[in-house]
Amino acid sequence: MEPGLARARTAAYMPVAAPLLLREKSMTSIISINGLSKTYASGFQALKSINLDIKRGEIFALLGPNGAGKTTLIGVICGIVNPTAGTVTVDGHDIAGDYRAARSLIGLVPQELTTDAFETVWATVSFSRGLFGKPKNPAYIEKILKDLSLWDKKDNKIMTLSGGMKRRVLIAKALSHEPQVLFLDEPTAGVDVELRKDMWQVVRDLRASGVTIILTTHYIEEAEDMADRIGVISKGEIILVENKAELMRKLGKKQLTLHLQKPLDAVPAELAAHNLALADDGNELVFTYDTNAERTGVTALLSDLARLNIRFRDLQTTQSSLEDIFIGLVTDRPAASAGVAP
């Protein structure tokens, strides 16, 4: 990580009245989405009557498989996609009727690395600030570029930058007008570990200064690290909105797979107390447990296996990926179990 990156960042983003505002409005929602629907000209219904409130100052992670409607939802709120029905307000301003006020509060980091290739970093970030109606403030732009480790690239043309650097440029552009709400659409797709760490540090600092952050991601670890609340969207519907802690408890299931030396016909009666299933024609024994539980039962299972002289060649543990969980959440139970059964 670049030296000094994490230093003294918070203060710069802190609006003067932030503490007061935070105290007064901390319980209110900054974005209210009511009955929002979007049907594309092709007939595809991307959003189906979405109702969602984003609380002021929180980090909200929007999770969902590809094509679930995440980007469309963000697009509608930011003014890139026209809704078919429903309303959205940002800090009380309707996104259609009062779009100027609504949009000036929002910064958007799009999923695609779309940049003005021939522009310099400094020019493109300054352009964004002007576009959002803010007077010049070179000191602030300098601050952002330094925080995002872009300062020494400020005179470089964007097309000469690496993918990760371009992503930083997009973040700098989104922050250039000091937004109150920041949308990060898949910010870490194709981004290396170092940049991810930097980026999350910036996000944390922003949050500390009172900025509300809405991000979409595929990575459960990210949601786990960052978010206060998590919403799951699937096929255009919000199917779950929950506090992270609660959701993590639900999603914390893990599986231990034992590759047996000799196949079993059935799970031995002596092992019935453990949550076991046979797979791969009896060659694998699958143990499902809860990582958050005080006792996972792994030790007991292994000692029972040793006692019964069931030997295994190899073992592996797997945690349900978010994709799996989405499928579990969105697919009907019979269909889901059909997928598991041999």
């Binding site: 930011c78 003014g79 890139i80 779009y99 100027r100 006020a101 609504a102 949009r103 000036s104 929002i106 958007l108 799009p110 695609e112 779309t114 940049t115 003005d116 290739a117 964004s128 576009l131 959002f132 109606g133 552009k173």
Partner: peptide
């Protein structure tokens, strides 16, 4: 050009008429 490269997103999401 912004439509082609996708940078039009910024114009559409900005508080401009």
């Amino acid at each position: 050009f912004p439509r082609f490269t996708g940078t039009i997103y910024e114009l559409l999401s900005a508080p401009v008429s």
